[in-house]
Simulated scan of single mutants.
Amino acid sequence: MNPLIKKFKEYGSLTPEIEKELSIRIKSQTKQKGDFFLKQGQIVSSLFIIEKGLVRSFFMNDEKEVNSWFGFENIILGSILPLFYKLPSFENIQFLEKSTYFYITMDELNELYKRYHSMETIGRIMAEEYCKIMEDRIMSLHIQSAEERYITLLKEQPDVIQRVSLGHIASYLGITQETLSRIRKK
C-alpha cells in the first residue's frame, strides 16, 4: 500500500473514494544521498513521507550548518513556511541516504480537505501531532542537558548512530562533536 495513504489511515478512516483520489494525486520519487528536497529560499509546498531513506533539516547560522531535525521512514515531513504559508523556506532538507519518498502538494491536499470532512480531520490531527513534536523539541532544548537530549534521541531513533554522522548529531543536540564523544564514552 502507498505509505502516505497508510499513514493518513493512522489518523482517521478513508473511504475507497478518498483512497482513489489520493492514489491519483500522490507521486513518488527516488533521490540520491546529498540531493535536496528543499533549499533555503525555495517554496516547495509538498507533504512527504519516506518509504526508505533518511533526510535532515538544517539552516545556516554564521556560515555554520545547524541541524534542526532528522526525518526517518514512515513520518510525515515538510517545511512549515512553504507548506502552509507559501513563504520561502529558511531551512534546507537534504537526503542523507538514497531515499524513496511519496508526496502530495498542499494545493491538492487542501482540495481534498474541502471535499471530504474526514480528510480535513486527518489534517487537523496531523497538525496537532506536529505541534506536540515541536513543543517537545523546544522544551528539550531548554530543559534537558545535552546528555539527556542524546539519550532521548537514542530512545526515539535507536538506529540514528548507524545512519547519521556524529557531526550532524552533535549539531542537532546543540553541542560540539568533542562534547558528544565525551557523552558517548559515559
Rank of each mutant, 00 (worst) to 15 (best):
F48I: 14
K64P: 00
S45L: 12
L54T: 04
S45R: 13
G71T: 12
N74R: 12
F58W: 09
F70M: 05
E73W: 05
V55C: 13
S57K: 07
F70H: 01
I50G: 02
E65A: 13
I50A: 03
E63M: 12
G53D: 00
I49V: 04
F59L: 14
F58C: 06
R56F: 02
F72T: 14
V66Q: 04
E63L: 14
W69D: 01
L54G: 01
L47H: 02
E51W: 10
L54Q: 01
V55S: 05
I50N: 00
F59K: 14
R56T: 03
G71S: 07
D62P: 03
E73D: 01
N74H: 11
N67D: 05
L54H: 01
E51K: 15
M60I: 15
N61S: 15
E63H: 10
E73F: 01
I50L: 11
M60L: 13
N74L: 14
N74P: 07
I50E: 01
S68F: 08
S68K: 14
K64R: 12
I49H: 00
E63T: 11
V66C: 05
G53K: 10
N74F: 09
R56P: 01
F48Y: 11
E73V: 10
L47Q: 03
F70W: 00
S45M: 11
E65F: 10
K64H: 03
S68H: 03
D62L: 13
I49Y: 00
S46T: 15
